[in-house]
Structures are given as C-alpha cells and as structure tokens.
Write a protein that binds this DNA or RNA. Structure first.
Lengths: 205, 205
DNA sequence: ACGCCTCTGGAACGAACGCTCTAGTCAGAC
DNA sequence: GTCTGACTAGAGCGTTCGTTCCAGAGGCGT
C-alpha cells in the first residue's frame, strides 16, 4: 500500500504519503458533496492544502485516476460505518433499522450534504468513464456483501441473503437521496421501519 | 442550414413554442444522462437544433432557469409513466412489481443511460442552487403522491399509504441507480419482488 | 407600405477548466 | 561535497464554460 521506503521515518510520519491521503480525502469529500464535474482539481488541491504539482505527481492519470482513488476511499469509509452499525444488534432487521437511524442523524448533522460517497459521481460518469464506473461497481458490491454477510449470520439462506442485500442497499441509497433532497429524516426513518418489516416477513416464511 | 425558411413552410401557430419545447426536452435528456454540470448550454442548443440566442431568449435566467424547466418536464414524463404502469393491476403489490419490470426493460433498452430524470441533477446541485432543489422536491413529491394514491385505492389506510409511498419511491430510485451502475436488471427485479412482499406484509396486518 | 416585436444566428468576453512544464527544495546515498 | 530521486510550487497552455450583445429575419396590425 505505501509507495516508497521514505516513510520508514517515524518522527514526521511520511510527509509525502500524508499529502497523498489529504488529496484523496479532499477529493472524496468534494465528489460526495457536489459531484465529479463540479469539483475542480485546483479546488481539491486547495482544500487538501496541496498544490497542483503534488496532485499530478501522485495521480499522473489526472482527474480520472484521482476519482478512482477517491471512490475506493469512500468505499472503505462507508463499509466500516456499515459493519460497525450492523454489529449493534444480533437481529438483522433491528440492526438495519437502527443503521437507517444513524444514517439519518449523520446526514442531518452535515446539513444534508454528506450523502453516499459514490452515487453522484457514478451517475455523472455512467457509460462515459469506464474506470470510474468499475470503481463504483466495486464499492456497491462491497457494501452489498457486508449486508449479505449480516443476513446470513442472522439466519437467512445464502441465496436469499444475496437478493435481499441488493434490495436493502437499493432502499438505503434511495432513501438517503430522498432525505437529502427533502432535507428531512423521514424517508430514511420510513425506509428503516419498512426494511425491518420486509426482513421479518421473509424470515417468517 | 435549411432552418431559415422552415417556419414559412409549416405556417403552424406554435413555431416558437415548438423551439422552446425542443430545448427543454434536449436539456432534460442530457441532464438525465450526464448530469447538470457536464451538460453545456451550447451542447443542449445543438442537440435541440436551436441556437444560443434562442436558449437565452426563452430562458433569460440562463442555465439555472433551463434546469428548472427540464426538471419539471421530467417530472411530468415520469409521472405519466408511473400512473400508466400502476394502472395495469388492481392490486398495488403486483402493480408495483410489474412497474419495476417495465423500468428495468426500458433502462436496458437505453443501454442503461436513461435513469431517473432528476436524481443526478438534484445530487449535483444540492444546497447550492435552491431553485433547482425546489423543483426536484416538487418532482419527488408528485411521484410519491401518485404511488400513495394507488396504495389508498388499493385498500391501505391514508397514513400508512403516505409512509409506504416514500419507501416505495426510495427503493425504486435506489434500485434504478444500482441497475444503471451494474448494467443489470437484477437490482430492479429484486426490488420489485421485495416491495411486493413488503406491501403484502403490511396489508395483512 | 410601414414599424413593431418576437425570435434567430453567431461573434466575442472574461473566467474557469484539466493539464503540462520547468524550476526549486530537501533528504539520504556515495 | 556531489548527485539523485521524490516531492513542491505555480506560471501558463489551449479549450470550453456561461453569458452578453447586436444585427438581422419573419409575421402582424395598421
């Protein structure tokens, strides 16, 4: 993962690697908040306290390569949040509902700005930038697998868990978008309740 | 260009209105496919067989005003599709599932390009262009009301229909996005099946 | 016939875009 | 010391952006 050997120094903790990560984090946050096209590389660099030279040093592939890195960063960040959130309750239905509540609270706290870290970029570049689309596919697959794993450990059959996890993720994504646009926790809260009902109904079969 | 004399030939009353509508349709389709920021006004005009002068004549408020008109156009278009699709079956659960199938087929036929006509633009401009955000809120509210109406006519209590319609729309939006990114009908098909289960479970209570 | 008004066509503007380029700084290897 | 390679800094490239502006074209009331 680390690029070279110059981070062996521990005192200042790899200034270069640190710059790279600041750039990725800045890009990820800007893409999440206002999308790919509206986030200029110069702005990304400024927000990361870096310069254009640094950006193109670490990402010679330009904005596209930076976007792929940013998507992957968002993938891991949200996967961690998802795993942690679903651990709270042994019952999958209650865990999913609780996670919707967490998502709603976090979204409101960011003034409805920090939604899904990949959806906006994914929709903007669909069918036009294959590398970005593949990164987004990977992120969604990762999150879906986290959900499917929780469902399986909660007693769902493997095949059923695979299909249900797709719908759970779809509903989470859609409800998050609706909550952002309406500036209201209601869509996410309703989604949580109804996903719990759905999981309960399927489980009872 | 033969466009100089086409008006004299047709002699129809709405020649100007026709240009305006071509511009709106072109804008709506481009915003739907590649978002607000990536769709330049010059490209919109070209695709509509219009000129910059025409665009700024009909939309002196510039790109923002054009976007609002495009969103409203998409709102009506999708509302019609939703109403027609839900009419197919008296039972709301089966109607919703069938509509998911229609959506999936249409999406595949467009090579996964023609998704929700407002989501991309909405996410890109969230919190930065109030007029566009309000138009998007209006579109979502309209579609949700179409769904809620179907649920009420299908025997759901008014309050329940209001909440359920939010989740149905969330799931539709999210599943459409997932289908586009994965280039697969599967997320939409699964969403349809599970929404039918959910509506059945709530109805049985 | 005339002027009036709506609508069209496109040149031009400043700003911002992604990106390239070169000069410079700095740490460690020799 | 000198060299080397990784990293920083930012001026500047060509292009495209949204927008403005104005000179016409066409239909219409008079």
């Amino acid at each position: 993962m680390s690029s070279t050997s110059q981070r062996a120094r521990s005192g200042e903790a790899g200034a270069a690697a640190d710059t790279r990560e600041r750039i990725v984090r800045s890009a990820s946050r800007l893409f999440q908040r206002q999308g790919y096209e509206a986030s200029g590389i110069k702005l990304i660099a400024r927000e990361a306290d870096a310069t254009l030279g640094s950006v193109y040093h670490f990402f010679p592939g330009g904005k596209e390569q930076l976007a792929v890195a940013a998507i992957r960063h968002g993938e891991e960040e949200f996967a961690d949040m998802l795993r942690a959130g679903l651990e709270g309750d042994a019952d999958a239905a209650r865990a999913v509902e609780a996670f919707c509540g967490e998502l709603a609270t976090a979204l409101r706290k960011s003034d409805w700005a920090d939604g899904c870290p990949v959806t906006t970029t994914a929709l903007e570049t669909l069918g036009r930038v294959p590398a970005i689309q593949e990164a987004c596919q990977g992120a969604l697959r990762c999150w879906q697998e986290v959900i499917a794993d929780k469902l399986r450990r909660s007693g769902f059959a493997a095949e059923e868990a695979g299909e249900l996890s797709a719908t759970v993720l779809s509903t989470l994504e859609g409800a998050e978008t609706l909550s952002q646009i309406h500036r209201s926790e209601q869509p996410l809260r309703a989604a949580g309740r109804h996903l719990a009902v759905l999981l309960g109904a399927v489980h009872a079969e």
